[in-house]
Design a protein around this nucleic acid. Structure first.
Lengths: 248, 248
DNA sequence: ATCATAGTCGTCTGCCTGACGATAAACAGC
DNA sequence: GCTGTTTATCGTCAGGCAGACGACTATGAT
């Protein structure tokens, strides 16, 4: 290899792109913004922006998230950070032709958030909305309708990460408000996986997995029907045994 | 967000670093090279180098791998690429102070390879060796003995990725030669996880998981004892049921 | 011949899972 | 108040898989 030679490296632009997921009306939705300029003007894209000088990648992602949604990101490495959204690095995309103007390497991040009011259009993005990921992914990444750049691929990778990670971690609680019922958590799994789950078996599994849920003390009837116990997320991050996604 | 403004972005250097893992003498080992220059001169580091203009991230990782080891990387997205090593993107590290000279963002990749002859010292790296990961990680990432830069963290992340990924994928076969026995595969799991596994239960599991192994037709006694059947990796990439890592 | 080493096949028991019956506690409408 | 609807919660039962471990087989070493 050529060791580091500060005078002879090609310069890159480095950005962060965000796959912000939430569950709205029984559907997994992603945050997209409409591009106001070329290229891909008028097309939907994932929110994101340049990493600043002297700014860590996670900090850049958290800043962009805050600018777009007002959400306070919750770095899992720093526990006790309140009710912020979950943020983790997803993958990095660096195809030389992914941006037609210059060499841009984008470090994509995944954000999981509870259901939010309609996003505020922040800064230069002239509009933003929650779109069901099924619709976004059905558009494909080519043609005139799909997401800008390689964002369809990034979104697909983020959705797949979320789908697999809620199997063996307690990440599904990141889609819920601080206090939630077993039924609400079940509807999260159903929306993310796109399947129907048996409420009785789900209840047994989720309450029987140590550290997943701790009772919060009250009950609620906000979903109708019999009052349901409220829970908070327990301390466990890895579920044992895991929640298994049903077969094909 | 600030949309792309080609004239106003901070320039970054982008590198790839490689976590190259193999199993040697019942131990999980990583490839490290000795640094020939400042900073961290004389310390061990992960192999890596700058991403070139017009070069994809995966291509840069494959090129560095070839330069360091002569291995031909096998992109999992491109099947049928022969007996190359497994290569996948690991994570990206961009702390502003991770390189004391300039802003460097490093896209780390994970490589899993079968046991190889001693690495050839390629190019400017004045020496390279396989080191047991337990030794490397026990040094810590500070003080005068550990790996250079944040490479101890990168290595730890790569090892953890490998440990968890062989649970639910057929990746352990990437540590084996093209034809191998059940016992050899078991020793891979034992080395990567650092545990002892029951040979009888392991044999039942691994031969009962559809698509994991296909008989290659012959037998071998290279491990001593009774001749063992030879297998090749089957087509399956995801194992169902998974190989479960024993509890703590 | 005997031992040591490794591989392979079975058995048994306990746990987890999926399928599904039954009961409980709220609300809406009559 | 009664009835139907909705959701939550508990129980039961059969099947599958996993860990513990016994038994047997086929090679090379002494």
């Amino acid at each position: 290899m050529s060791p580091y030679d500060p005078s002879a490296y090609p310069p890159f632009a480095v950005t962060v792109d965000l796959v912000v997921l939430t569950v709205r009306r029984h559907a997994l939705c992603a945050l997209v913004v409409r591009r106001g300029e070329q290229p891909f003007q008028g097309r939907w894209a994932l929110p994101g922006g340049f990493v600043r000088d002297e700014e860590d990648l996670a900090a850049a992602a958290a800043r962009e998230l805050s600018e777009e949604t007002g959400l306070c990101a919750h770095d899992p490495a720093m526990p006790g950070a309140g009710n912020g959204a979950h943020l983790e690095q997803l993958a990095t995309y660096g195809d030389p032709k992914r941006d037609p103007r210059m060499r841009v390497v984008s470090v994509a991040h995944l954000v999981l958030a509870p259901d939010l009011p309609a996003p505020r259009a922040g800064g230069d993005a002239n509009s933003a909305r929650w779109a069901p990921v099924d619709e976004l992914l059905a558009l494909g990444d080519e043609g005139s309708a799909g997401l800008a750049f390689d964002h369809a691929q990034i979104l697909a990778d983020g959705v797949e990460r979320a789908r697999s990670k809620i199997e063996y971690s307690s990440l599904a609680t990141a889609f819920c408000p601080p206090e939630f019922t077993v039924g609400e958590l079940r509807r999260v799994y159903e929306a993310v996986w796109g399947v129907a789950l048996d409420p009785r078996n789900f209840h047994r599994k989720v309450t029987g997995t140590p550290g997943f849920l701790v009772p919060a003390g009250g009950t609620t009837t906000r979903q109708g029907g019999r009052p349901a116990q409220l829970f908070r997320a327990g301390g466990a991050t890895l579920l044992n045994p895991p929640m298994l996604r049903p077969e094909v």
